[in-house]
Amino acid sequence: MSKHHVTTNINGEPVEFLCEAQQTMLDVLRDELHLTGSKEGCGSGDCGACSVILDGKVVCSCLMLGVEAEGRKVITIEGIAQGDKLHPVQQKFLEHAALQCGFCTPGLIVAAKALLDENLNPTEEETRYWLAGNLCRCTGYDKVIRAVLDAAAVMRGEPGASVST
C-alpha cells in the first residue's frame, strides 16, 4: 500500500510528510516529525495527553488520522511558546507548580490555551468542565485550575496572583 503524501501546517510552518493511512496524527507527530511533546496516555480519547489544536479546536490526536491533517492547521505543545517566551499558561504552570511528573502537562497546556483563545474570562466551573478530558494522576487538579485562571487574568491585563515560590 503506497504512503500518503500530506501537506499541512504545524505550529505556523508548512510541513509535508509521508504516512500510512492507519497512522494516527499522534503517531505522525511523534514518530515521523519527532515532535514528542504530545504524549500517549491512553490512545483512546480518555486522557487528553495527546491534545492538539486542529483548525482552532482542541482534539485528541490519538483519535485522528495523520492523513486527515491535509490542508489543515495543527498546533502542538511545541508551538505554544513564542520562541523563548513562554505562553502565560506555561509561565503560570511553573509559578503555581501545577505539575509533578509532567506527562499530562503538554495536553493540559494545549487544552487550556484553546480555552483562553475562545474565552479570556472563564469561570472556575467552565475551566473545570473544559479540562475534564485531561487526566492528571499526580498533581491533583486544583493547582492546574489556579494556574489557568491566573494566566487568564494576566492575559486580560490584570496583575495576576503573586505566588510564593
Binding site: 479546536k57 482542541v58 482534539v59 485531561n134
Partner: peptide, 9 residues
C-alpha cells in the same frame, strides 16, 4: 458527549 476534545470531532 465526551470531553472538549471529543466535542471537537
Amino acid at each position: 458527549i465526551g470531553s472538549t476534545q471529543i466535542q471537537g470531532r
